[in-house]
């Protein structure tokens, strides 16, 4: 059964600005893909622990030693916009 998706909401959550036409197209494609992916629900998995990662390693520590890192100039060299040593972005809050 095709999966019903609120595609406009998903696109907003993902911060991707899509036209109505694109939303309809992606919505239809996702519905088909999810119908296929939903096959996973036909396997009985009661009591099965989820695997989030193939390695059991936890708490991977490194020595607490200061090492050189990028300079401010290097970090900002590829910024779309920078000013006074900071990344610059457009207005974040609404109109005052």
């Amino acid at each position: 059964m095709p999966v019903d998706i609120d595609i406009a909401k998903v696109a907003h959550l993902a911060r991707i600005d899509l036209s109505a036409e694109e939303l309809a197209q992606y919505g239809a494609q996702l519905s088909v893909i999810l119908e296929y992916a939903e096959r996973v629900s036909s396997l009985p998995t009661e009591g099965v622990e989820p695997t989030s990662h193939p390695l059991p390693a936890t708490n991977a520590f490194r020595p607490d030693v200061v090492t050189p890192s990028l300079t401010n100039e290097e970090a900002l060299a590829m910024a779309p916009e920078a000013e006074d040593g900071y990344f610059r972005v457009p207005r974040i809050l609404g109109e005052p």
Partner: peptide, 11 residues
């Protein structure tokens, strides 16, 4: 979806 896929990964 995601949780079930992770359990299938275990299987």
């Amino acid at each position: 979806f995601y949780g079930q896929a992770q359990r299938v990964r275990t299987l």
